[in-house]
């Protein structure tokens, strides 16, 4: 596991003016490379399933899940990459229950699909990048 603090520090200051503080939790180096200039990115070298479990831990510790963990039709384990938006504000009880269910279901779904190699790593990274970028664009428009 490796956290790249550079991305975090760089973006923390710029994030200050945003209406809801959020950061991108990802194991996708393309997301870290392309989005860290304008956004706070926490990059961790984890598997698909591990990054979902990391998100779950962060939800349990009082942060909010802002994107769907099963985004994209490239299935869990078929792509090695996953990016999620995590809000730093504490969720309501209702939001907490809803997002915990989403993340638990996503973790459970990991066993349903067969793992693949990384021959097309760049393409998998690109799809994950476009999925999370669509969410970032929504997040930057409002809360």
């Amino acid at each position: 596991m490796c956290i790249v603090p550079f991305f975090i520090t760089l973006a923390q200051e710029r994030n200050g003016a945003m209406r809801e503080k959020y950061y991108i939790l990802t194991n996708n180096p393309m997301v870290a490379g392309k989005l860290s200039e304008d956004h706070k990115v926490v990059f961790m070298e984890l598997s698909f399933e591990e990054i979902l479990k990391e998100a779950r831990s962060r939800i349990h510790s009082g942060q909010s899940l802002l994107t769907h963990p099963l985004s994209g039709s490239v299935k869990p384990n078929e792509t090695p990459y996953k990016s999620l938006l995590i809000g730093e504000a504490k969720p309501t009880t209702e939001e907490l229950a809803f997002t915990l269910e989403l993340i638990e279901t996503a973790i459970a779904a990991c066993g349903k699909f067969r793992a693949k190699g990384d021959k097309y790593a760049q393409d998998f990274q690109l799809i994950d990048y476009t999925l999370i970028k669509s969410a970032v664009e929504s997040a930057d428009m409002g809360i």
Partner: peptide, 8 residues
Amino acid sequence: ENVYLADK
């Protein structure tokens, strides 16, 4: 069917 939960 967006990715962002608030959009949903």
